[in-house]
Design a protein around this nucleic acid. Structure first.
Lengths: 199, 199
DNA sequence: CGTCTATTTGAATGTACTCAAAAGCGGTGG
DNA sequence: CCACCGCTTTTGAGTACATTCAAATAGACG
C-alpha cells in the first residue's frame, strides 16, 4: 500500500521546505516514484554506468565506493534510513558514474527517475525548492566532511562518526568504516586498540 | 552602470536554467544584489563568523581555507571569474563558518544576501531552479574532487588542476596550490622537480 | 563442525612529513 | 642602479606514521 509506504518521504519533503504539501500535490508527486526492495550485497549502480536515479532509503543501509587504478575500494558514502544516495556526479553531469552503489542490508528504497524529478520540478515550485534544499544540504555536508578530513585526525573522525551514528559499528563492517575514514582496516584496528588502552 | 556590470550574471543564470529571463524578471533580481570591489588579501568571511552571503566572481581570484588546531591552513577552494564562493556550510546550515575567504587579487564581486535569495526564490520559480542547479553542480563537483583525491595521486591532480586552469600557476602562489592538493609546499616542489627530471 | 571472511597483531617498508638552511624573486628605498 | 628585505621556493637530512606483507585469531554462517 503505497500511501503508507510513502508517508515517510512526504514528511521528509514537508520538513525540508517548511510547509505542507496538499494531498493533490503529494498524490501527483507520489505517482512519479516507485518503491523497490533490494537484497543485501546487491549493486544498484555500477561505476562507469550512467546513473539517472536517486534513491531514498526508507529502510536498510547502503554504501557507495570507487575502485582506484590499483584495485583498492574507497567508501565515499554510507547511507541509512532517511538518507539519499546516488551518483550525483553522473546524475547531474550526464557523465559515467564515479561510484558503485551497493546495499549492505535488505533495503526498502524509493526510486526517483531523473525525468520524473524534472517533470515534478517544472510542475510544482515546492518540489523544485525541495530539491534545491536537498542539494544545498548535501553540498554543505560534503564541505563539512572535507573540512574535517583536513582538520581532524582519523581517531576524532571515527569517534564523531560513531557518535552521530551509534549503531554503525553493528551494521557496517569495520573495514568499510576504515575505508570511509580513508585508512586501511589494519590502521583503524590499531587506532581502536590505542583508544582502548587509554581506557 | 549596473546593467552592464550584471550582464555576466544574467548570462550565467540563463545558461544554467536553459531559458531566458524577461527583462522584468532580471531587473527585479538585479535590484536584490549589489556589486563590490575588493583589494587583494582582504578577508570577506572569517572562519567562525556567520556567513549570510554568496559571492559571484566577475573578476579576480579568491580562496577559502580553514585553519586546523595546530595552526596549519588548508585551502578548500580556489575561485576565479565565473565561479561562486562562500561558506556554504554556514550559509545553509546557519552555523559558524568553517572557512575563511580571502581575495588573492583585486576582485569585482556580486554579493547575494541570503534574504535576497530567499525572496527571489519565492517570487521566481526560475531563480529557485537556478539555485537548485547551482547547488547540484557544486555538489557534483565536490563528489568529483573527493573521488579524485582517493583515486589519483598528487601529481595527477596537480596536472589536472593546471590543465583545467592554465593560468593558475601565474595567479596563485605554489604553496596555496600545494595546500589545495593536500600536501606541504616542500612536497609539491619535489613532485614538480621529479616531473621536470622525467622531462 | 568447518569454511570463509573479518579483525587483530607483528615486523619491515616507504612516502610525506618536520626541521633547517640556502637560493630565488620581487619590490622599496637609498 | 644596486642593495636590502621579506617572502616563496627549493633542497637536504632525519623522522614519524600509515602502509604493505604476512600470519594468527576471532566471528559468522551454512
Amino acid at each position: 500500500m503505497p500511501k503508507i509506504k510513502n508517508r515517510m518521504i512526504r514528511q521528509h519533503i514537508e520538513s525540508k521546505i517548511g510547509k505542507a504539501l496538499t494531498d493533490e500535490e503529494f498524490d501527483y508527486f507520489s505517482s512519479l516514484l516507485r518503491n523497490k526492495s533490494v537484497a543485501p550485497k546487491e549493486v544498484l549502480i555500477h561505476a562507469g554506468d550512467r546513473c539517472s536515479k536517486l534513491y531514498f532509503v526508507q529502510k536498510g543501509a547502503l554504501h557507495s565506493f570507487l575502485t582506484d587504478d590499483v584495485g583498492n575500494a574507497h567508501v565515499v558514502q554510507l547511507a541509512f534510513e532517511g538518507h539519499w544516495i546516488s551518483d550525483m556526479y553522473s546524475f547531474h553531469m550526464d557523465q559515467p558514474a564515479l561510484f558503485t552503489i551497493e546495499t549492505l542490508e535488505p533495503c526498502e528504497l524509493i526510486v526517483f527517475e531523473k525525468s520524473a524529478i524534472a517533470e515534478a520540478c517544472d510542475r510544482l515550485h515546492k518540489i523544485e525548492r525541495f530539491f534545491r534544499i536537498l542539494a544545498q544540504n548535501a553540498y554543505a555536508a560534503a564541505q563539512y566532511r572535507i573540512a574535517r578530513s583536513y582538520s581532524a585526525d582519523t581517531e576524532s573522525r571515527y569517534l564523531e562518526l560513531v557518535d552521530k551514528n551509534p549503531d554503525i559499528v553493528l551494521r557496517v563492517p569495520q573495514f568499510l568504516i576504515a575505508s570511509y575514514l580513508g585508512v586501511k582496516p589494519q590502521s583503524l584496528s590499531r587506532i581502536r586498540k590505542q583508544m582502548a588502552e587509554r581506557r
